[in-house]
């Protein structure tokens, strides 16, 4: 399969910067998509850096735990942060825009990938976003978003709600 890239909307795009100075590397997602990335950008992930140093992959690094859509987003992030001449202010602005368009379920996927690939800055920022998105939400919203089944009985639920009634003040409506 030819290396290709996707933007966060899932459309195929030509990779913005064909790195000339640094060698390219192929990252392979769980669903078999391949992405080209410069070694300097990939090296911002501690996990990929270790794999490059071990050189066990022969130029292609399989990431069997990250799907293509998520990997495309992570690569967009890494490319920006490895860009020559991008100031901290540029990167901060980029992060803000990059993350603000994502729904919480997408943020969760990116957080998981950020943790797995050991990209601390990304993981931390995404966690903050998730926290801001969920702090005023209802219990039902959290269960739905994180796909959790309640294992409380109806009586237990009623009891907990009554015990901590004050914590149910000011909760956003689930329709938001």
């Amino acid at each position: 399969m030819a290396p290709k890239n996707k933007n966060p909307n899932g459309e195929n795009v030509v990779p913005e910067v064909q790195q000339k100075k640094t060698q390219a590397l192929i990252l392979k997602s769980s669903d078999g998509e391949e992405f080209s990335i410069s070694k300097s950008a990939a090296g911002l992930s501690v996990a990929i850096k270790n794999m490059m140093e071990d050189d066990c992959a022969g130029g292609v690094i399989p990431l069997p735990l990250v799907d293509g859509g998520t990997l495309a987003r992570v690569i967009t992030y890494l490319n920006k942060h490895a860009e020559d001449g991008a100031s901290d202010e540029d990167k901060r602005k980029f992060d803000e825009e990059f993350l603000s368009g994502m729904e919480v379920d997408v943020l969760c996927d990116v957080a998981l990938a950020g943790n797995y690939l050991d990209i601390r800055g990304l993981f931390h920022d995404v966690c903050q976003r998730i926290v801001n998105g969920m702090k005023n939400k209802s219990v039902e919203w959290v269960r739905k978003t994180f796909r959790i089944e309640s294992d409380f009985t109806a009586e237990e639920e009623e009891q907990i709600k009554k015990e901590y009634a004050w914590a149910w003040e000011g909760v956003d409506s689930d329709a938001d």
Binding site: K137, V142, F146, S150, D151, F152, Y164, A167
Partner: peptide, 12 residues
Amino acid sequence: KSLTRFKLVSKH
């Protein structure tokens, strides 16, 4: 306050 509410998400 959110955490107190989210105790109800699951036993875990």
